[in-house]
Design a protein around this nucleic acid. Structure first.
Lengths: 413, 413
DNA sequence: GCAATTACAACGCGACGCGAATTAAGTGCG
DNA sequence: CGCACTTAATTCGCGTCGCGTTGTAATTGC
């Protein structure tokens, strides 16, 4: 267990304040105090330190209290967007997506490389990633040494701590240290994270989970990912392993054990006899499910059934998750959602049937169709989240700024 | 999020020290410092405060360092067993089990009431619980006002915070406030917890999870319970709902959705055509599975198949849990384990088949057949765990003991 | 009996968060 | 135009925390 010392205490409160500023944008100190339940004194001290470190800046406008604004006006605080830049990336089997963001997660540049990395050797993938990162950083008008952290996200079972990829649909080899390969090439702090966790952070920071510190996210793409946000933080297993959903067994008979991924992954939906080359091409381009939807609408009954079957399986799996985690919200994302109601109707039905009665109204299900860029942005958010928590400045006590003290004393009197 | 203040800091470290003393029995201050990674100074201050509050006591013996014990001998510290007493209880459908423990969880008295509470109104059950608590406390030679907390555990979905029972196999009604009913009768602090969480704590404190801060426990009885220990603490869902396993759906088709409880609960195993009255009677007495094992050994093929089917389903469910939580250990408990290998062979086989390759060696499966009393003791441990964390003494700073100071100064010189 | 060794307590330091008092920076009314 | 009023933010002093250093206590070995 982590030992509790003043340093930890400050780290917690600093993060809390910084995160509050991020979430509510321009916000005054008083309001931070109200939201964090820290005293005004403490908030002042912490914000002074943050200002000193250049992580936030002041703005003397935007006080939007109701009309009669009596008293000393509030000084609004915002993140200093220039405080740091990070790169987030999504590695999928048929494309690499990069984005550079500033300190508050605004996208400065983004880049999609539609290359099929599927089953390539790690070293080759790492080369591609290096290339993408360098180009995207250049596009943002930055130099590589201005990037604080690179965060890579990909499907599969990832050891967050070590940056090892235990297994992934996009990797041929198992148990490779992706982090090491990237650090060797870029010499920048690198984080490797499951793509589901990345998009979970994205939803929490920018999307449908902004107002909610506890939710479960299910990512339905080629792989089936799972992200759990618990108390505002990503829930990682005991060994910092990321969670996956595709390996969930749907069936009671080990002889006929069917994994969820065999029912609900994109590959599974297409694995009728659809050798249709147009569809396969569309999938290469990452628009497979849109095409599939089109085919269903044109009357392809086989695909319709496959979609419904996938939806049913997912509905059940989600009900199982709700029974396990009892989250107030379940967010669904991923390219497979392009199937629309062909997937969702059966999903909702199966969920409703499967969810036990006392948990009926525990979880609200939210569908969110998101862009690839948001996934990459989520990876960036993972990186930023770690920056927010790490100590800046001079291992920094919340010291009163000495510089100001001098000028004040001399000029003022 | 909890705001970090000095009080929280002290609570954490105090708990940490107290818990270390509990786990390692007679232990010196230096050793506590090593184990908690707190400085010797801090440990001294905290232990002084704990001594002051009477929660621990010193013992000038038992220094078991290797032969050549040079230097000032270590003073060993132990919990003061008299510091508090709690009652733990297990409420099952056909029996109530109580135990009174002292501050370190030793059982002072225990009591089993073989009554069928199944489907009784809450008020009646509460009456029975009241009765049992009073009798058990008396058996321990104590008065009711010497009991600090009562912790009740029962199967089902429990809201730990409010003490409400959302649904339980032993309750006829849904969504009742058991805590309230008990407090009204006994006027003692009451905790309501799922029985799976209770036995999880029992395994952590006294059983097969002593050395391990992260594990998953599956309780296989009439109901199927799930306990998750994460970082040394019970993992509770966002709403402090306890987790259950029986509602996990084993199947992909919503039309034929089968809950795990329909395959692996004791009722399910017996629900062949076994109206055999001897078996039913045995079940009433809580020895059903032992009898079933006997019948299987006598050649009852139907039951053998049912047991194997249950094992398979459980093996798959456990594999799913491992895929979700990646725990280093999975502990299996519960009366159904009396079936022995008739259950476990198929369980192991199904688990091995279902677990995805990269997670092959993540989790070690441990079978632990435990007594009813341990469940009740686990409930007591839940109560004690909360006591360890709560502030004692005078909202107590780690003050240097004033009393001792006086006598020392006056007597010593 | 004295040195060496080890455990523990006492003291002082720096940092934290908080409440009360103080200063800053506006609005509104006469 | 100026003065009271109001609210925001800072400063100050207090109590607490954990930690490093120093001092003291209680042994063993020679």
């Amino acid at each position: 267990m982590k030992t509790a010392d003043p340093e930890l205490m400050r780290a917690i409160n600093r993060f809390h304040v910084l995160d509050t500023i991020r979430r509510f944008g321009a916000i005054s100190r008083v309001e931070i105090g109200e939201r964090t339940v820290l005293s005004a004194t403490t908030v002042s001290a912490i914000t002074a330190s943050l200002l000193d470190d250049g992580l936030i800046s002041t703005r003397h406008e935007g006080d939007l209290r109701s009309g009669g604004a009596r008293g000393r006006p509030r000084v609004m605080l915002t993140l200093n967007p220039e405080a740091a830049r990070v790169v987030g990336a999504k590695i999928a089997s048929n494309r690499l997506v990069f984005c550079v963001t500033n300190f508050q997660g605004d996208v400065l540049a983004s880049l999609t490389l539609p290359v099929r990395v599927d089953r390539l050797p790690v070293e080759v993938i790492a080369d591609l990633v290096e290339d993408g990162v360098r180009r995207c950083v250049m596009d943002a008008g930055l130099a590589l040494n201005e990037i604080k952290t690179v965060a890579l996200s990909l499907p599969g079972i990832i050891e967050h701590g070590t940056g090892r990829v235990r297994s992934s649909a996009v990797f041929r080899d198992a148990n490779v240290s992706l982090k090491e390969a990237i650090v060797k090439r870029l010499d920048i702090d690198t984080i490797v994270e499951s793509d589901a966790n990345a998009i979970t952070m994205a939803e929490h920071w920018f999307g449908r989970g902004r107002d909610c510190d506890d939710f479960v996210l299910v990512a339905i793409e080629e792989s089936l990912g799972l992200g759990v946000l618990h108390g505002g933080q990503l829930f990682r297993g005991a060994r910092e392993l990321s969670l996956t959903l595709g390996d969930m067994i749907m069936g009671s008979d080990p002889e006929h054990a069917i994994k969820l991924s065999e029912l609900a992954s994109e590959r599974a939906i297409l694995d009728g006899d659809h050798g249709d080359s147009r569809v396969r091409d569309a999938i290469r381009l990452g628009q497979g499910m849109g095409r599939v939807r089109g085919l269903i609408e044109e009357g392809d009954n086989e695909l319709r059934i496959a979609a419904a079957r996938a939806g049913s399986a997912l509905g059940i799996a989600i009900a199982n998750l709700v029974a396990l985690f009892a989250p107030p919200r379940v967010i669904l994302v991923g390219s497979t959602l392009a199937l629309g109601d062909y997937l969702l109707d059966s999903l909702r039905l199966a969920f409703a049937k499967a969810i036990p009665d006392p948990l009926k109204n525990v979880a609200q299900i939210v569908i969110d169709e998101v862009s690839d860029e948001l996934w990459a942005r989520g990876a960036a958010a993972v990186a930023l989240g770690e920056l927010y928590g790490s100590p800046w400045g001079t291992t920094g006590p919340a010291r009163r700024s000495n510089t100001t003290e001098f000028s004040d004393t001399e000029a003022g009197r």
